[in-house]
């Protein structure tokens, strides 16, 4: 085995946490980014249209 068990466990225990924090920040930032607001607003209302045909 190229990778030692202890190394793997150490990576799991430390970087796993950093990864979690980074991911949480990224997801929240994307969701709250001001320039995305309009797109989300459009998306959430667009499914309510009654037009039941594909757009050309």
């Amino acid at each position: 085995m190229g990778i030692e068990h202890d190394t793997l466990v150490a990576i799991s225990k430390s970087w796993g946490l950093f990864y979690l924090i980074a991911l949480a920040i990224a997801a929240t930032a994307y969701a709250l980014w001001p320039s995305n607001a309009k797109r989300f607003e459009h998306a959430k209302n667009s499914i309510l249209d009654d037009d039941d045909k594909p757009l050309k």
Binding site: H5, L8, V9, I11
Partner: peptide
């Protein structure tokens, strides 16, 4: 990427461990 990391971190070490 997001989904596989958990499985990798938890399972991979089990295959190298001697203990």
């Amino acid at each position: 990427a997001v989904a596989s990391i958990g499985g990798f971190v938890e399972i991979a070490p089990l295959f190298t461990i001697h203990k």
